[in-house]
């Protein structure tokens, strides 16, 4: 080990290990998009429009109760109303529900909604064609707006999912 090469060998090992550390630091950040992809695959927190399968037959043999929830983070600024506490839907049937968003403030505000499903597996069977959660909402002072949501419940939805919940949490736009 007294050979003159040892110092270089040590530096080489150190360099490799530093790279490993750097890669792992990057990995922590890579987990952000990875988590999104993972959620997309498992269906948790899915927020993009779904391609509608061409072959949509309605399964009239059963009904799924879809509960609609609306939450606002800042109750003083906004009011978000679900059209009903729950609506029945046949798997495969195209459903439209109109949420209502109202700006209670005297100035224009922007915000957006985050969709969430319970039980988590239910997300996999929601095919949303139109949703206000796809984009930012800008409301003028005291404006009231109807926000349609169009979705189809996948016919693959297991029979034991008799009640599913579609929940929206509305957040005021945060400064970036």
């Amino acid at each position: 080990m007294n050979a003159p090469g040892t110092g270089n060998a040590n530096a080489r090992v150190r360099e490799r290990l530093l790279w490993l550390a750097l890669v792992m630091f990057g990995f922590a950040f890579a987990m952000v998009p990875l988590y999104r992809v993972f959620c997309d695959i498992t269906g948790i927190n899915r927020d993009e429009a779904q391609v509608l399968a061409i072959n949509t037959q309605v399964d009239t043999s059963r009904l799924v109760l879809v509960q609609l929830l609306a939450n606002v983070e800042d109750a003083a600024q906004w009011r978000l109303n679900a059209p009903a506490a729950a609506i029945p839907a046949h798997p495969g049937e195209l459903i439209q529900v109109d949420f209502e968003l109202e700006n209670l403030a005297d100035r224009a505000v922007s915000g957006h909604a985050v969709a969430s499903y319970a039980p988590a597996v239910a997300a996999r069977y929601f095919r949303k064609i139109e949703c206000f959660c796809f984009r930012e909402q800008h409301l003028a002072a005291r404006e009231r707006r109807v926000l349609p949501v169009m979705f189809v419940l996948d016919r693959q939805i297991p029979p034991d999912l008799g009640v599913v919940t579609l929940s929206y949490a509305f957040f005021r736009q945060v400064k970036t």
Binding site: L17, L20, A21, M24, F25, G26, F27, A28, F29
Partner: peptide, 14 residues
């Protein structure tokens, strides 16, 4: 340590 301390560093950086 080399594999996970950077991950903690990343998490707290976020």
């Amino acid at each position: 340590l080399i594999a996970v301390m950077p991950v903690l560093a990343g998490a707290v950086t976020m």
